[in-house]
């Protein structure tokens, strides 16, 4: 038993050395990710498939109720001026996005599949199946359905870790699309916030927030989300706005890295 304890103590010391020193940790992460990739790919594929199957089952059971709800909705549907305004706004955003694509035709998108997620529910980081081999660079923006969802944090041979915009470690330079006011997008456990907005800025609820391109790593004009009400007090130096992000990060399966 004493011999066993000694071996265990040695193992613990080795683990601490590996984990604490960044170089050894990076090398070790690379090895673990390389060894785990086949298993992770299969497991994530199974997870996506079975999730789809479970969702399907739920849909079947609620189909009758949904059907009657839809009939009711169809009867009472009335397109209000507010909805028209929303559509007009959405159209403007889409036009902006189209403009972005036309302006940045040199930008290439690298399609990638999510093979790993943060397992503690904090929805902080994801692992994708593309890495150095596929020209993924650290700091590149990652988008899904035209909206930014994060940036590349660590790159390995054929996998990368993405820090999501909801993470407390994420900072993205953004601006309000209408007023062109610059700010900083920060993630937190209480949701995503746009900070550092001057007090005299008028912010409309639902105003689109896009990347500003400051800092050079992430291109300008990529949709982030929409302003969802101020959360700061008038006595504060800067305004803080709650942001409703454009993509449901829970449902992501495929993403694109901007080359």
């Amino acid at each position: 038993m004493k011999k066993n304890n000694k071996i265990f103590l040695i193992i613990i010391i080795i683990i601490i050395i590996i984990v604490v020193i960044p170089i050894t940790r990076n090398k070790f992460t690379q090895v673990v990710m390389y060894l785990g990739k086949p298993f992770a790919s299969v497991a994530s594929l199974l997870a996506s498939d079975s999730r789809g199957f479970l969702t399907g089952l739920t849909e079947i059971s609620s189909l009758r109720k949904e059907n009657s709800d839809l009939v009711q909705k169809l009867k009472s549907i009335n397109i209000s001026s507010v909805e028209l305004e929303e559509l007009r706004h959405e159209n403007e955003v889409l036009k902006q996005q189209l403009g972005f694509l036309e302006e940045h035709q040199e930008s290439e998108l690298i399609p990638a599949r999510i093979i790993g997620r943060e397992p503690f529910g904090a929805l902080d980081r994801i692992i994708i199946d593309k890495g150095i081999k596929d020209s993924v660079r650290k700091g590149s923006a990652v988008v899904a359905n035209g909206a930014i969802i994060g940036r590349v944090d660590e790159v390995f041979e054929d996998q990368s870790k993405i820090v999501l915009i909801t993470s407390k470690d994420s900072i993205v330079q953004v601006m309000l699309q209408k007023s062109r006011t610059l700010g900083i997008l920060k993630g937190s456990l209480n949701g995503v916030k746009m900070e550092n907005i001057p007090q005299d800025t008028v912010i409309e609820d639902g105003e689109a927030i896009i990347t500003s391109g400051l800092g050079g790593e992430i291109e300008s004009g990529i949709l982030v989300g929409w302003a969802n009400g101020e959360v700061s007090y008038k006595s504060e130096i800067y305004k803080v706005v709650d942001v409703e992000i454009a993509e449901d990060l829970n449902k992501l399966e495929q993403v694109f890295v901007i080359k």
């Binding site: 785990g36 790919s41 997870a47 999730r51 397992p119 503690f120 529910g121 692992i127 829970n250």
Partner: peptide, 16 residues
């Protein structure tokens, strides 16, 4: 691997 690549895809109220 199972935690990060399988169970992490099933989030219920931000818990896995």
């Amino acid at each position: 691997c199972l935690d990060t690549s399988f169970f992490a895809f099933y989030e219920i109220f931000n818990a896995t």
